[in-house]
Deep mutational scan, measured.
Amino acid sequence: SEHYTFDGEEQAIRFMRDMEAKNLKYELQIHNGKYIIQVD
């Protein structure tokens, strides 16, 4: 699995939509205002 970190919500949402379009599962965590997305 890989981790991707985003500072902004818009970037994170765009990335998650992209993952959904590719049928990839992901998990979102928010730490200290950063959006951390783990992709299986």
Rank of each mutant, 00 (worst) to 15 (best):
Val39Tyr: 04
Ala21Arg: 10
Gln11Pro: 07
Asn23Gln: 08
Glu27Arg: 12
Glu2Asp: 11
Lys25Gln: 09
Tyr4Asp: 01
Tyr35Thr: 02
Ala12Ser: 02
Phe15Met: 06
Leu24Gln: 09
Ile37Val: 13
Glu9Asn: 04
Gln11Gly: 07
Gly8Ala: 13
Arg14Ser: 11
Asp18Ser: 09
Gln11Leu: 09
Met19Asn: 03
Glu27Trp: 12
Leu24His: 09
Asn32Asp: 12
Glu2Ala: 12
Val39Asp: 01
Ala21Ile: 08
Phe15Arg: 02
Thr5Leu: 10
Tyr35Leu: 04
Gln11Trp: 07
Gly33Ile: 00
Glu10His: 04
Gln38Ile: 15
Ala21Asp: 09
Phe15Gly: 02
Asp40Glu: 13
Ile36Lys: 03
Gln11Cys: 13
His3Gln: 13
Gln29Leu: 13
Phe6Lys: 00
Arg17Ser: 09
Asp7Leu: 08
Phe6Asp: 00
Ile13Ser: 07
Met16Arg: 00
Leu28Gly: 01
Lys34His: 11
Val39Ser: 03
Leu24Ile: 15
Asp40Lys: 14
Glu9Val: 11
Ile13Asn: 11
Ile13Trp: 06
Gln29Tyr: 13
Ala12Gly: 01
Phe15Asn: 02
Lys34Arg: 09
Tyr26Ser: 05
Leu28Arg: 00
Phe15Ser: 02
Ile30Gln: 05
Gln29Phe: 14
Ile30Ser: 03
Tyr26His: 03
Arg14Ala: 12
Leu28Phe: 10
Tyr35Trp: 13
Phe6Ile: 03
Leu24Met: 11
Glu10Gly: 05
Gln38Ser: 14
Asp18Met: 13
Thr5Ala: 09
Gln11Ala: 13
Glu20Thr: 06
Ala21Tyr: 08
His3Phe: 15
Arg17Asn: 10
Phe6Tyr: 03
Ile36His: 11
Glu27Cys: 14
Phe6Gln: 00
Ser1Glu: 10
Ala21Val: 07
Ile13Glu: 10
Ala12Pro: 00
Thr5Glu: 12
Asp40Asn: 12
Gln29Arg: 13
Gln29Glu: 10
Glu10Phe: 05
Ile37Arg: 00
Ala21Gly: 09
Met16Gly: 03
Ile13Leu: 13
Asp7Pro: 05
Ile37Ser: 00
Gly33Tyr: 02
Gln29Cys: 10
Glu9Pro: 12
Gly33Asp: 05
Phe15Asp: 02
Ile37Glu: 00
Gln11Ile: 06
Gln11Thr: 07
Gly33Glu: 04
Gly8Pro: 00
Asn23Thr: 03
Glu2Thr: 14
Tyr4Arg: 04
Leu24Val: 12
Met19Phe: 04
Lys22His: 10
Lys34Pro: 00
Arg14Leu: 09
Ile37Gln: 00
Asp40Gln: 14
Glu10Pro: 04
Lys22Arg: 11
Lys34Trp: 09
Gly33Asn: 07
Asn23Phe: 06
Ile30Trp: 05
Tyr4Val: 06
Met19Val: 06
Asn32Tyr: 05
Tyr4Lys: 03
Lys22Leu: 13
Asn23Lys: 09
Glu2Ile: 14
Lys34Ser: 06
His31Ala: 10
Ile37Met: 02
Glu27Tyr: 12
Phe6Glu: 01
His31Arg: 12
Glu10Asn: 05
Ser1Trp: 14
His31Thr: 11
Ile13Asp: 08
Phe6Asn: 00
Ile37Thr: 00
Lys34Phe: 09
His31Asp: 10
His3Ser: 12
Leu24Thr: 06
Arg17Ala: 12
Gln38Arg: 14
Ile30Thr: 04
His31Tyr: 10
Lys22Gly: 05
Arg17Tyr: 07
Asn32Lys: 08
Tyr26Phe: 11
Tyr35Ala: 01
Phe15Leu: 05
Met16Trp: 02
Lys25Phe: 08
Val39Phe: 06
Glu27Gly: 05
Tyr26Ala: 11
Asn32Leu: 07
Met16Gln: 03
Asn23Ile: 02
Ala21Pro: 02
Gln38Tyr: 15
Ile36Val: 10
Gly8Ser: 15
Lys25Glu: 07
Met19Ile: 10
Tyr35Met: 03
Glu27Gln: 12
Ser1Met: 12
Phe15Lys: 04
Tyr26Val: 13
Gly8Glu: 15
Arg14Gln: 13
His31Glu: 12
Glu2Met: 14
Tyr26Leu: 05
Leu24Lys: 10
Leu28Ala: 04
Asn32Pro: 01
Leu24Arg: 10
Glu27His: 13
Tyr4Glu: 02
Arg17His: 10
Tyr35Ser: 00
Glu27Ala: 09
His31Val: 15
Arg17Glu: 12
Glu27Ile: 14
Ser1Cys: 15
Lys22Trp: 05
Gln29Ser: 11
Phe15His: 04
Glu9Met: 12
Asn23Ala: 07
Ala12Val: 04
Val39Trp: 05
Gln29Trp: 12
Glu20Lys: 06
Asn32Phe: 05
Lys34Asn: 05
Glu2Lys: 13
Ser1Ala: 11
Gln11Tyr: 06
Gln38Ala: 11
Lys25Arg: 11
Tyr4Ser: 01
Ile30Met: 09
Asn23Arg: 07
Asp40Ala: 13
Glu9Gly: 03
Asn32Glu: 11
Asn32Trp: 04
Lys25Leu: 08
Ile37Asn: 00
Tyr4Met: 05
Asp18Ala: 12
Asp18Phe: 11
Ile37Trp: 00
Val39Pro: 03
Ala12Arg: 01
Gly8His: 14
Tyr26Pro: 07
Lys25Gly: 08
Glu9His: 09
Glu10Ser: 07
Glu9Phe: 13
Tyr35Glu: 00
Met16Pro: 01
Met16Val: 06
Gln11Lys: 06
Gly33Leu: 03
Ser1Leu: 13
Lys22Met: 11
Met19Glu: 02
Met19Leu: 15
Ala12Phe: 06
Asn32Met: 08
Ile30Tyr: 10
Met16Asp: 01
Gln11Glu: 15
Tyr26Gln: 00
Arg17Gly: 06
Arg17Lys: 13
